[in-house]
Nucleic acid binder design. Sequence first.
RNA 1: CGGGAUGUAGUUCAGUUGGUAGAAUACCUGGUUUGGGACCAGGGGGUCGCACGUUCGAAUCGUGUCAUCCCGACCA
Length: 494
Amino acid sequence: MATELKGLTKRSENYSQWYNELVVKADLAEQAPVRGCMVIKPYGYAIWEKMHEVLDAKFKETGHQNAYFPLLIPKSYLSREAEHVEGFAKECAVVTHYRLKNAEDGSGVIVDPAAKLEEELIIRPTSETIIWSTYKNWIKSYRDLPILINQWANVMRWEMRPRLFLRTAEFLWQEGHTAHATREEAEAEARKMQNVYADFAQNWMALPVVRGVKSETERFAGALDTYTIESMTQDGKALQCGTSHFLGQNFAKAFEVQFVDRENKLDYVWATSWGVSTRLMGALIMAHSDDNGLVLPPKLAPIQVVIVPIYKNAEDLQKIDARVASIVDGLKARGISVKYDNADNKRPGFKFADYEVKGVPVRLVLGMRDLENGTLEVMRRDTLEKESMPIEGIEDRVVTLLDEIQENIFRKALSYRDERMVKVDTYDEFKEQIENGRFVLAHWDGTPETEAKIKEETKATIRCIPMDFDTTEDGKCIYTGKPSSRRVLFARSY
RNA sequence: CGGGAUGUAGUUCAGUUGGUAGAAUACCUGGUUUGGGACCAGGGGGUCGCACGUUCGAAUCGUGUCAUCCCGACCA
């Protein structure tokens, strides 16, 4: 399948359009026939698969196991936890029937009214309810705890305004659901997983994130605390990349999950849940890409190195093939994923542009001229710099180059974000900086009312109370002038 | 659910006062090409979103309907 690559909109002209075109032209995903749903194409899925693999290993290192719970949830389960219903009820897809039949007038297939379900089923928007109703049967004693389980699944939320990867009706994610004997242990777990996410974002995705705690209004429905990692897109908006919730005993109480502790006393268990989704793909795309297309961090790139031959006839190509074979072997031996594209049906210029749009970190070009000189051309995607190098020893050079690129795109994204994170002390200044697409650190009086007013007037929300840097200091709320003991992070968000 | 817009080739779009379907690009075939998105020649592809109406005649006019996109409210 060939993609139409020409004419990618510039970021500066229309950021949303640029993003959309990029997702499609880099061959990552496309819209599905069903509104709000997307088809993740092989190249896009390969990136997600790599993320999945790395995260899964981290979960296992931290003592978690994978399991799987059902897609369909009885409607009554959802109403058990009051805040939880409130948060999700408006966006649930509901299964009401279990059979179709042919219409009598021959107009096609219709829902068989005789097959109406007694209790409707909800397609999971998240799995807390089904999981906690199951944990109830698993937990009797403190000896059954902790339960540290993760599931990789798809969930469905009937969103009003879908966007590829960032907000789709159906999305892929992992959700961890843990049960603990003590409050302290559960809180520690929630923070631990936030750190796992932050580590993954920064060291694998090359994505700088702010770790923090959500304000009461932004908190997950049913949680006591929501820990978040927030990244910045190139148009200056915030993107919630991962969350880890300390659920207290809310779900245990709603689903009557009690255990007998060491002192033979009955108590409710303490819970956490945490998740990241295919939205990470959106964060990745928005963080590093440029007007030539995607820029992938080498650690997650499905193809880390592409080799393009340049030749005039079959005889030349044979010579290049032979020389390239050993380079390919050498790179593979070093654990590098490499593609040698000697397809004859595309010209070199086309291939160059194509792999640039797809964000392949390193391109090696080898022509007859190079063959004679014992050189090749090395291009790095992050800077677009080209350099001629000796073929001899190129494999090791590529290894270090990939590391440099990984490091460089993180640094670039970090300084981009840091330049756009500002402190303000007046509301006028606040409005101006929000309008400029900045992350704004400002004093807030701590009330949901003020937060709501600010959101209404500026569309900015409190992204988090940051944990990565100390924002404690005496000041006055930018909106009400009431005393505040620390700054919080405001931004517009996706 | 409010406000705005659009449905014509795989895609992006043109289509005049109503007269029976076009371009670019993509695709297929052949040839020449190949150090930054090739060129020439030929070819295939559309019940003009759907329904009804007006008319000798509708992509074009009217009514209805469905769908999609953008802007809000909501959200991982």
